[in-house]
Computed example of a mutant assay.
Amino acid sequence: MVATSESAHEISAEGAFVRQANRFTTPFGSGPGELPVEAGRYRLLWAAICPWAHRQIIVLNLLGLTEAISIGKANPVRTDRGWEFSLDPAGVDPVLKIRYLSEAYEKADPAYTGRATVPAVVDISTGKVVNNDYFKLTNHWETAWAPLHKKDAPDLYPPDLRTDIDGLNDIIFHEVNNAVYKAGFAENQGEYEKNYELLFKRLDILEERLGKNRYLFGSSITDSDIRLYVTLARFDTAYNLVFRCNRNRLVDFPNLWNYAKDLFQTPGFGDTTDFDAIKRGYQLGSHGHNPYQLLALGPDTSGWNEKHDRGRFNNIPSRGSA
């Protein structure tokens, strides 16, 4: 039976948060056993609160894959049965005809006992989840799905930078993306402090790096920028408050803040960022430990549309290193 968000308690005996492994990791491609690349065959299920899912939506928009990949959206506040499609009429996904994401997991593997997570790619013809590998999924969109990219789509994963991008992505995952969760979900003071220090040490390094380049690898947006952005977009609204990652706010880092605004104002980023859903998901859901369901009024998000200073790097082609 698929676990609910409450029963899937990913905490070690030492009080450390240990994220569950992805169950459905078959890659897309044309090789034996791979998932065929076929327009109209798949539906990507996501929730606007989730950074792992949000980065899929950004990539699909940047590459022009939103016509080839169907998209379904769950309520940002999880129920005791997990992600629910209560934003849709009649409370069911209009394509898959399911109320809860867990139903697609159960169809794929009746013996699955982990959490039903987003993002999840579902084969529409069977209603089964075929890929929930949030770590590699953007790379599949960027490579295997290249034949269906829009004309003049950006190269988010250029071959000559892939080793460097992979290396930095691994650092960003362990020391930023997942570090906020390991600090926020820790049930041991030492685990909380260890990941708090790890997070802000890396943010300090990234702050310095982004004082030299417009983006993480120079003058063009790459997959790494998308992975960093989704955490920065949630930082002041969720992680600083709910997860006690409060040494600094994002707005206290001049380079990171202007970099985040630059990305937010780029089509595909800000227009897919829902601060209200992020706030509700983290504060009113199981993350928030909020028995009276009080929703914080702040922070003010109007600053995301203010002018940034990143144009000063337009003529700098350098690409940096991890």
Rank of each mutant, 00 (worst) to 15 (best):
A16F: 07
V18C: 03
Q20S: 11
R23K: 15
F24Y: 12
T26K: 14
T26R: 15
P27R: 14
G29A: 06
S30P: 00
G31N: 09
P32K: 13
G33T: 06
P36C: 08
V37K: 05
A39H: 04
A39S: 14
G40H: 05
Y42P: 05
Y42E: 09
L45I: 13
A47N: 09
I49C: 05
P51E: 07
H54G: 02
H54V: 10
H54P: 02
H54Y: 02
R55S: 05
Q56G: 05
Q56S: 14
I57S: 09
I58F: 02
I58E: 01
V59I: 13
N61H: 14
L62C: 07
L63D: 03
L63I: 11
G64V: 08
T66Y: 00
E67P: 01
A68S: 14
I69N: 01
I69E: 04
S70Q: 14
G72T: 07
A74K: 07
P76M: 07
P76A: 09
P76Q: 08
V77I: 15
V77N: 01
R78G: 07
G82Y: 03
G82E: 05
E84Y: 08
F85I: 12
F85E: 06
F85C: 07
S86F: 03
L87M: 09
D88E: 15
D88T: 10
D88F: 13
D88A: 15
D88G: 01
D88C: 11
D88W: 14
P89E: 13
P89N: 10
A90I: 07
A90D: 15
V92G: 00
V92W: 01
V95W: 03
V95T: 13
V95Y: 00
K97E: 12
K97M: 11
R99E: 13
Y100F: 15
L101N: 04
L101S: 03
S102P: 00
S102M: 14
E103I: 11
Y105E: 09
Y105W: 10
K107M: 02
A108E: 02
A108G: 01
A108C: 04
D109Q: 04
D109R: 08
A111N: 14
Y112S: 09
T113M: 08
G114L: 11
G114I: 10
R115V: 05
A116W: 02
A116R: 07
A116S: 15
T117W: 00
V118G: 00
V118Y: 02
V118C: 02
P119G: 07
P119Y: 07
A120K: 09
V121N: 04
V121W: 05
D123T: 08
D123M: 10
